[in-house]
């Protein structure tokens, strides 16, 4: 008799470890994403210079760079499965929800890794004023959670189509836009000394809504081929 419900947790964990191991072995995903992030950051910094006084612009630029990095890399986890034809294997060992959660957790780790490099570099290159770390980290955390949830779901869709990077960016943009708006507003607020509770609430609510929708929708994602 097969194992029971607790194996969903194990499936998620197994998938997460598998993703990390695959990523480590090939490593092109993380390299490309970091390169992309640093390149966009460098271009921005070069074009705009130091902007210590314009925290509104800084907030926007930071999230644009992060968004670009996310759009350039978060689809890989599903595209690799499709191109390698390994979705069959995956679907035979785990439920759609477990697959989704495993991939989501991996994408979150991925995003955080990119942010660990990009955010400090951004603050330095752009001459940003010292942030209020509590609020900034909270925004980065919740923003990344929402970003991951939305992008992973859309990536799962896109991986089954003919389209790739450009389509992923275009199709996920409306879904990710509320995150961008709230995160930029919150980042600006933490620099101007205003409270960020409204933005944090918004990001949290959106993340929860996206995760709830995911739980319902992932079952329908892989039903053919």
């Amino acid at each position: 008799m097969p194992a029971s419900g607790s194996s969903s947790g194990r499936a998620v964990w197994a998938i997460l470890r598998k993703e990390c191991r695959s990523e480590w072995r090939t490593r092109y995903g993380l390299n490309a994403a970091l390169l992309f992030a640093v390149t966009s950051l460098a271009s921005t910094s070069f074009a705009v210079g130091r902007m210590s006084d314009r925290t509104d612009v800084l907030a926007a630029l930071l999230w644009v760079v992060l968004l670009f990095a996310a759009l350039a890399s978060l689809a890989h986890t599903f595209v690799r499965e499709t191109e390698g034809h390994t979705m069959t294997l995956l679907r035979l060992v785990a439920t759609p929800t477990s697959i989704a959660l495993g991939k989501l957790l991996f994408n979150l780790l991925f995003l955080i890794s990119i942010e660990l490099v990009t955010v400090p570099l951004f603050l330095i290159f752009m001459g940003a004023p010292a942030p209020r770390w509590g609020p900034l980290l909270a925004i980065l955390g919740l923003g990344s959670l929402a970003l991951g949830a939305g992008a992973t779901l859309v990536a799962a869709i896109i991986a089954q189509t003919r389209g790739r990077g450009a389509l992923f960016a275009g199709v996920s943009f409306p879904v990710l836009l509320p995150i961008l708006a709230a995160a930029v507003s919150g980042t600006r607020a933490q620099w101007s000394g205003a409270p960020v509770t409204a933005e944090l609430r918004l990001l949290a609510a959106y993340a929860v809504a996206l995760l709830a929708a995911s739980l319902l929708l992932y079952d329908h994602l892989w039903e053919d081929a």
Binding site: G150, L153, V154, I157, Q160, T161, V171, P174, V175, L177, P178, L202, A205, Y206, A209, L210, A212, A213, L216, L217, H220, L221, E223, D224
Partner: peptide, 16 residues
């Protein structure tokens, strides 16, 4: 099917 799933996601996004 995929368009319908995307509709579902958009449904969450629109109020926000």
């Amino acid at each position: 099917r995929l368009a319908a799933v995307y509709s579902g996601i958009a449904f969450v996004s629109v109020p926000f």
